[in-house]
Structure formats: structure tokens, C-alpha cells
Simulated scan of single mutants.
Amino acid sequence: MPEDLAIFIDWENIYISTVTEYNAKPNVSAILEKAREFGRIVSATAYADWTDGDFRNAPPTLYSNGIAPRYISARYFPGGKSSKRRTNSIDVMLAVECSDFLHNHPQVGTYVLVTGDGDFIPLVNLLRSQGKTVVVIGVSEAASYHLIESADHFISYASLLEEERAAKARDREKKKQFDPFKELVRAVEALKKGNKARVLGQVKQQMIVQLGSFDEREAGFKKFKDFVVEAERRGLVNTVDQDMELQVYLPGEKLPEQGGRPEDDGDKHDREEESEERDIEREGLDLYEDLTPYELKTICERVDDLGERASMVEIVGSIRELDERGELELSEEEIEEVVEALLEAGYLEKVRAKPYGAALSSMNFYRLNKDLKEVKNILKSAA
């Protein structure tokens, strides 16, 4: 079982360092991915004055990645901000709360400090004296040499970017070497063997399991459905509308009857052409015409899971995650259209609230309007 791990992020330090050295904001996902190599993340906190400059845009991204933004007011010495002589209240609070966490969570064996500030050397020494492993992630060009030496492990932020680029290059190379249509057939065979449902989302999910990742757009198709229809045209699979879902079968399999008779290829292609014509004529997305009951139910359930207060970034990200997992089949543009349609239909209810206790102003959040009759019916059908 992996060791428990806690992350403490000096957001101001890592932000200024990455912008200065690489002209880019910190890649939160890359930092978390590297941290997971050392254990199971049980706590992640980022410290900054979130009302200051560009920092104010960071909390939604942090929230969506499971990182708690901790607000600490950054005060200045007499003379004004022009002198840029800031107090170290943020650093002090990070060190104090990290020390407190150390004593209250003895089961956590690894601490990841995301910073390059040498002021944290005493904290590193304290953690190590208690038998904890300390990993420091920072921009090496701007990091304190003594901090690097005091940690058990130092991870250069540049190496994270290199690993990410290398991983993308490997994915691209891997995708060049496989035949997507053969992988589709293999996925359907695997689902048949496991006696599992073979709806489009499940088939795509199985392909992702086989390949690590799969995006039909890289094979030249706008939607996964278009990709499957092309495979059917090539005689590799057969598709049937069943229980309001498009099911995928292998050639030679007995197909279920629809409406009292089997559907032949002509019926199927006529249906596809009619659907494409409706797509061309349609100007806006209709929740009931353009989404299946399963898709609408899944989206509403996911938004409801976000709770009583979710940012628009979190809502879009949660729907995108459903698409990436193969539970939906929506392009980036369609995801935006779905969210707009949810707003227009009143399915999403606006909530004004402060993102964190010490914030100076409120911002717009949203929640699923469960008082709406249509939403009640959707959630009831999902029960």
C-alpha cells in the first residue's frame, strides 16, 4: 500500500519562478502527477494572497485539482508596494500549518514542498528529524542551493515539463503504430467475452483501457459514433439501436430485433443520414433532442455530485472528465453548448458566494436546480 503524502505549495514562489523562467503558469497537473510517485495524496494546500494580481485567477484551477487554496494577506513594510518589501507572513503560515499537520497526522510519511525559498530549510530539517521523507519541487534556476541539499529529493520543475513532453511524444508514436479499427474490434470482442454492455461509451472506455488513451479526432473523426459507423461501413462491426443506446456487435452475431423486426443496413444508414441533416439544420443544442436520456441523466448526476457550490470551471471539467472516461461522446464545443443549454433551461442555478472565508468579494458559483420539475424527474429516473 502506498505511503500517505501531504503537499504544501508556496504558490507565490512557484508562480513567479515559472513565469520568470519559462513564461508560463505552474502546471498543477504535472506537479500532482510527480507527487503521486512518492505516495497517496491525502492533503494538498496552496498558500498565497489570492487577491493579489494574477493570483486571483488560480483558486478555481486549484479547486478542480483537489488543492485547497489558503488565503494569507500579504502585507508590506512602510513605504508602499513600490518598494516590493513584503512581509513573510505567507511563508510563516505555511511552516506553522505544516508543523501542526506533522503532529496531528503521524501516519503521513512523506511531505512535498513546492517552493524554492531557502527560508523553508528549518521546516525541512524539522520534518526529517521526525523521520519524514521530504521532497522539494521547484524551479532549479531560482531555488536555494541549500534548500536543494537539505531535502531528501529535489525535483526540478523543468524535468516535469520534459517528462510531460516525452510522454506526449510516446503517445503520438504509439498511436502511429496501431490500427484504430483493429483496436475497436478487439474492444468489442473483450466486452463480448466479459458479457458486458457494448454501448458506445463502454466500447470507447475499453479502447482507452487497451491503449492508455484514445481520441477519435486523431483518427480523423469528429465523434466516436462517426468512427464506429465507418468501421461498420468497412464490415468490421454492426450497430443496433437498443434501449435508447447504440450497441456494437461483431459480424456474424445475431442482432436483437427492433420494433418487431431486425433493422437492416439500409435502415441504419438512412437513420444516420437523417441525424446528420438535423445536425446541419440545428442552430442550438436541445437537451432532449440532442442528448440521450442516459447522457442527460449522467450530466445532471455529475453536476449534482459537485454540491451546492461549484465554479463554471469545475462544471465544465467534470463533464469533460465524463467524456474522457468514455461515459459521454461530446466534443469540446458540444460540452460548452451543453452547459449553455443547462443555463438557459434553468437547470443550473446561480449562487453568489465568497470562494474562501477571507476573500474580499463574492464570485458566481452554480448548483443543480433540484427544485425544477424537469430536474426532479431526471434524478428520480436515475434512482
Rank of each mutant, 00 (worst) to 15 (best):
L5G: 06
S17N: 08
S17L: 01
T20Q: 14
N27G: 12
D49I: 09
G53P: 00
F55I: 06
N57I: 06
P60G: 12
A68P: 08
P69A: 02
P69G: 06
R70M: 11
R70A: 08
Y71S: 03
Y71W: 13
R85N: 14
S89G: 13
S89D: 07
D91E: 07
A95V: 02
A95M: 04
V108K: 10
G109K: 10
T110F: 03
V112G: 13
G116H: 05
D117V: 11
P122Q: 06
Q130Y: 14
T133E: 15
V135Q: 08
E141K: 14
H146I: 02
S150F: 04
S159F: 03
E163H: 05
A167V: 02
K168H: 13
D171M: 12
E173A: 14
K174W: 09
K175T: 11
F178S: 00
V188M: 07
A190Q: 10
V199D: 15
L200V: 02
Q205F: 02
Q206P: 01
M207A: 00
V209P: 00
E216P: 04
E218W: 00
E218K: 08
F221D: 00
K222W: 02
K222A: 04
K223N: 05
F227Y: 04
E230L: 09
L236E: 00
V237T: 01
N238G: 01
D243H: 06
E245A: 11
L246R: 09
L246H: 07
E253R: 05
E253G: 02
E253K: 06
L255D: 03
L255R: 00
P256G: 05
G259L: 09
G259H: 10
G266T: 09
R271Y: 09
E277Q: 14
E281V: 08
G284F: 15
D286E: 12
Y288K: 14
D290K: 07
T298V: 11
T298W: 03
C300I: 05
M312T: 07
M312F: 09
E314I: 04
V316E: 13
S318K: 10
E324C: 01
E324F: 00
R325G: 02
R325H: 05
E329H: 04
E334F: 03
V338K: 07
A345N: 09
V351C: 13
R352Y: 13
A358P: 02
A358K: 13
A359Q: 00
M363F: 11
N364V: 09
R367S: 03
L372C: 01
